[in-house]
Design a protein around this nucleic acid. Structure first.
Lengths: 150, 150
DNA sequence: GACCTTACGATAATGATTATCGTTTGCGAT
DNA sequence: ATCGCAAACGATAATCATTATCGTAAGGTC
């Protein structure tokens, strides 16, 4: 895993509806590319003239997470950050602390390690969260805040 | 690392004072053994007849974390959980979702992996957070809430 | 014991997330 | 097209952990 998700949501008899707001959230998320908070997303949407409630943004993000469209990580403050999930299904990120740039990283080694730990300890249903942060090459040379650019 | 910590606190010219409250927090933390929330700790202390403010519990935990006496992990809800750091300096835990039991696990493999990722991506000052959760053997057979027992 | 500083703690504020609940709307069936 | 109903919306209030404020208390050094 490596990112948070709603585990064990068994089945959804009724598929989620396609609403203007939900599409707007997903498209705004893609427009960003980088990890974005629900609040930022809401502001960006309203700035673009999209009428949408903050509650709905949260709801949309939950749904999109449940349906596997977005990944979630958590800031040190506890704030959740969202980003559209890349097609290949990778799920581990290395996030720049300075500009927010995120890279998908290979984590097969960690997957295997987690499985081994599960066996060795007798724990069941072991989930793991792996979050990497650092300072990217660009920010090392010039600590610029390219936050808004994405 | 694997647990949150106040990075880069450069130096502390004045050492923290030894107060009744701070000692009480540390001892209450040891009495628990397992990861405990600040609120639970505060309740336990007051139940033991220790007069202490919630604010002070938070402050004490911060100080103890800064001085390397306690480790911190974060729940899915964002709540912080504390526990005294074992002497050997290990820092990765596997926590039971049912009863809160925590086990220290070997994580050398993860340490090396994180370092490799740092090199491969050109990121600097890479920190990693690894949190494992699962259901321990006891809770698999009988899903008892041994929450208060520790 | 004085003094300076750190620590305390009651209270209020913060800030993200979730609950409530009446209204709106997607959408399959008619 | 329209009906009906559950899903979705959204304004507002609530929750809840954590942090800020600021006047008071108490380490510890002289």
């Amino acid at each position: 895993m490596g990112v948070l998700h709603d585990a064990m949501t068994p089945k959804r008899s009724v598929p989620p509806r396609s609403t203007r707001q939900r599409q707007a959230v997903l498209s705004a998320l893609h427009a960003r590319g980088a990890f974005t908070s629900a609040r930022d997303l809401h502001e960006a949407l309203e700035a673009d003239g999209v009428a949408i409630g903050l509650t709905t943004v949260y709801r949309a993000l939950h749904v999109l997470n449940r349906t596997g469209r977005v990944d979630v990580i958590r800031e040190k403050t506890g704030e959740r950050l969202y980003r559209p999930r890349p097609e290949d299904g990778h799920r581990h990120y290395l996030v720049c602390r300075a500009c927010g740039l995120s890279k998908v990283v290979e984590a097969d080694a960690v997957e295997r390690w987690a499985e081994n730990v599960a066996e060795a300890t007798g724990f069941a249903e072991v989930e793991h969260t792996v979050e990497l942060t650092g300072v990217c090459g660009d920010c090392r040379v010039g600590p610029a805040a390219r936050d808004s650019a994405g």
